[in-house]
Design a protein around this nucleic acid. Structure first.
Lengths: 226, 226
DNA sequence: GACGCTTCGTGACCAACATCACGTCCCCGC
DNA sequence: GCGGGGACGTGATGTTGGTCACGAAGCGTC
């Protein structure tokens, strides 16, 4: 296994707190696999026996209704991971995961994962912290779905994305369709709401980029329904 | 600390996998506290430093919007616990918790909790399993908020409640108002939808009880939007 | 058994969004 | 440079479900 993998793993939050030797141990257990854009990495209800770490590309976690409408539960980029739930509780996968671009993933099998977790409490603790973070986010999302109108949810999403990026401009070229799936709205409504934000001078949209020009207004809008 | 507390703790999933001696250790660290109906046990954004186990009564976990509307993220009964997130990741509380009835809780302080978790991997593992369960539920809830209409969400909630109880009758006297807060709808809409279910012969409502009379129909309704 | 409080039933009205149906633009590959 | 597919803009129309405004039952309390 190339040293590049070790270097990469040390940048992943889940493994960051580990000793170098421990990371090396992990790096020898993973297998690298790549998926073309649009391919399904795992299906809801499958029995799951591996954990995936995004090495390159971007994937979306989705639920799909009988008539084909979809919700995006999360979008994971480089360094993020998914699939640990099934390893922890032995339940089937709770959602589909689809590659949004050509992506390469590191795959870790259940037995290897479990053995390492049991031998190293630091991993268990890191996992607890990560699950806590996700639970908070999920609860927030439930709150925004119920308490906020569509523009409010978009405002919040823009602020969240900017927070991740660390600045007030967002590079990710998420399509309106994708945003719609994330916040639970239609593509058209997203288009209209974003135009209003631009007209109000709260954001500006360049080619492949959204820039926040009035953070205070966005924050206010993301907290109240009109 | 009375032996009753020890007996009770052994029935709590979080502690069930522990050795008797370990449970006794925990029982000596907890403090019992009771809260009148309607009182707020903890506030969102507070720094949190304790874990609570419901010993008697029932509590609700809620988010409240600026204009006072509320969402119920969860309703916890005897044996369930809350507040562990803040102990794990040191972040402020993510929601309010309010006593729905006169309730008594066991309180465990952060330091005591952490020490025990670090010394006993079984507790960490039980916690991981519990957080996984909650995460799955939260994601399901997000899915149902986006993909289902109100009657669909009610159908699903009825089925879920029945599953918890283990039979096809639900004793919990949840008010329509409470159901509305859980599924993100108005009290009136819940009333109307439930009447339709009764008229369709899918459920029957006696005094303090809902009985499922056509599970198949409910299941179907809980999977599609009309 | 009478009061009061909470819960529930129901009609009328209205707003937010989904949906449908286009047209335009942009970008990418050939 | 040209063609084509995906992304975006925008109007018209319909429907779900929220809100308001009542009245009628339950149910616990004195």
């Amino acid at each position: 296994m190339p040293a590049a993998t070790v270097d990469f793993l040390t940048t992943v939050p889940l493994f960051r707190s580990l000793a170098q030797s421990e990371v090396v141990a992990f790096s020898q257990l993973v297998r690298e696999k790549s998926y073309p854009k649009g391919s399904v990495i795992l299906f809801e209800d499958d029995p799951g026996d591996s954990l995936f770490v995004v090495r390159a590309g971007r994937v979306k976690v989705v639920l799909v209704s009988e008539d084909g409408r979809e919700v995006i539960l999360g979008i994971l980029g480089v360094g993020e991971h998914f699939g640990e739930l099934s390893l922890i509780d032995d339940q089937p996968r709770s959602a589909h995961v689809v590659a949004m671009e050509e992506s390469t993933l590191l795959v870790l099998r259940r037995e290897d994962f479990r053995r390492r977790v049991e031998q190293n409490p630091a991993v268990a603790w890191a996992l607890l912290i990560e699950l806590s973070r996700r639970l908070r986010r999920a609860d927030e999302k439930i709150g925004s779905l119920v308490l906020l109108d569509v523009p409010g949810r978009i405002a919040r999403m823009i602020l969240d994305s900017a927070a991740e990026g660390g600045s007030d401009s967002i590079e990710k070229p998420l399509t309106h369709q994708t945003i719609a799936h994330v916040i639970g709205a239609s593509r058209e409504t997203v288009s209209r709401a974003m135009r209003e934000f631009v007209e109000a001078g709260w954001i500006s949209t360049e080619r492949r980029r959204i820039r926040i020009t009035d953070r205070a207004a966005l924050e206010k809008r993301s907290q109240q329904r009109l």
